[in-house]
Amino acid sequence: MSLTQQMTPYGRPPRRRGLGVLLAAAVVLLVAAAVGITLAITGDGKSRSHGPTPAPPPTRFGIPSPQPARSATADPSAPLLLPRPARTAANGVPLGFPDSTEGAVSAIVHWTPIIMPGDENHQLDVLRTIGTRQYIKNEIPALREDYQKNPVAADTWVVGTPVAYQLISGLDADRITVAMLITLQTGNAAGTTKTEVWANDYRLLWQEGDWHLDLVEDPPKSVTLPPSIAPGVYRENGWKDFQIG
C-alpha cells in the first residue's frame, strides 16, 4: 500500500499542496521508524521481518545518479534524454534548463531531492530560488505552518529519488505539468530507514529565461501509483524512463 493510501481510509486524498502532504507523511514514517527501533531494543519474544533495509544515502541533499545509460533511438520506449543544468545558484541549486520538455523534466529530476522536507530553512531557501513569485507568496507561509504542525527532529532525514515520469500536460504557452515517481526514504541518526513509493505533480512555468516551480500537488486520478519501482511494473502503469545526458 502506498503512503498516500496509508494516510487516508478512503483512497486518494483531495488534491492539495504535495509538499505539505509529503511533510506529514515523512513525519509518520519517521515516527514509525522510531517505534521499530524501540521494539527491536526492548523485544517482545516475537520474530518480525521488515524486509531488507535500504542503505543510508551518501548525502541528505544529493542529486540522484543518472539512470543506466541506454542508446538514444527513435523508439518511443527509449528513455527521455535530459540535459544537465547550465549553471548553479549561490546556494547550490541547479538552474539553467532549456525551454523544452526535456529541460522541464530535467529541472524536476534535479530539484526533487533538494526540496524534500526535513531541514526547514534549507527546503524553503531552495523553493525561493526555483519558485515563481506566486508560488513563493502562497506556499512558503503555508509550508512554515506545516512545519509548526509537523515538527521534524534534528537527527532525521528524508530523501526523495526520482525514478520515472509521466507527462500530464505537454509544453504549451510556456507551461508544462509533469508527474514524477519517487522513492521516499526516511531515516535518523541510527541509520534506520524506510522506503515507500510516492508521486507528485509538478507544474512549471517558463519565466525570465528559465523554468520555475509554480505548483506541487497530488497527481490526477488518471495517474496510477505502481506497487513497486521495478521497471517492468511502473512502465505497465504508464510511467516512462529518463536518462541524464
Rank of each mutant, 00 (worst) to 15 (best):
P57A: 15
G187E: 03
Y165N: 04
A74D: 11
S169G: 03
T129Q: 06
G36Y: 09
P83C: 05
M7G: 14
D155T: 13
T192V: 14
G51Q: 02
D214R: 01
N91I: 02
R60A: 13
D146F: 08
V163R: 04
P56N: 11
P66L: 10
Q243G: 01
P57H: 10
R235P: 03
R16C: 12
E139S: 01
A74W: 06
K240Y: 03
D99R: 13
T8F: 15
P56C: 10
V233N: 04
D241I: 00
V178C: 09
I176E: 06
V178S: 08
V31K: 14
T129C: 07
P58Q: 03
T193Q: 13
I41N: 09
N188S: 11
W198Q: 06
A78W: 05
T224P: 04
G191C: 06
Q134L: 10
Y202R: 04
R128A: 13
M116L: 05
F97S: 01
I182L: 07
G18R: 13
L19K: 11
G170I: 08
G96W: 09
D99M: 05
L205G: 04
L181Q: 05
L184W: 04
L171S: 04
A153C: 09
D174V: 06
E217K: 08
A55P: 07
L22F: 14
P219H: 06
Q243N: 01
G160D: 04
G11L: 12
Y135P: 06
A154H: 13
N237W: 05
Q166Y: 12
G118V: 05
I176N: 09
T224I: 15
I140Y: 10
L143P: 00
P68T: 00
A104F: 01
H212K: 14
A55L: 13
A78R: 02
A24V: 12
G43E: 04
A107F: 03
T8D: 15
I63S: 13
V159E: 11
Y10M: 14
F61L: 12
I244S: 10
V152I: 15
I130F: 12
A153P: 09
L215Q: 11
K149P: 00
A153D: 15
P162F: 07
S106F: 01
L3W: 07
G11Y: 14
V35T: 12
A173K: 12
P219T: 09
R84M: 13
P57C: 11
L81M: 08
P54M: 08
A86C: 06
R203K: 10
F97D: 00
P113T: 02
P220I: 00
S169N: 12
R60P: 11
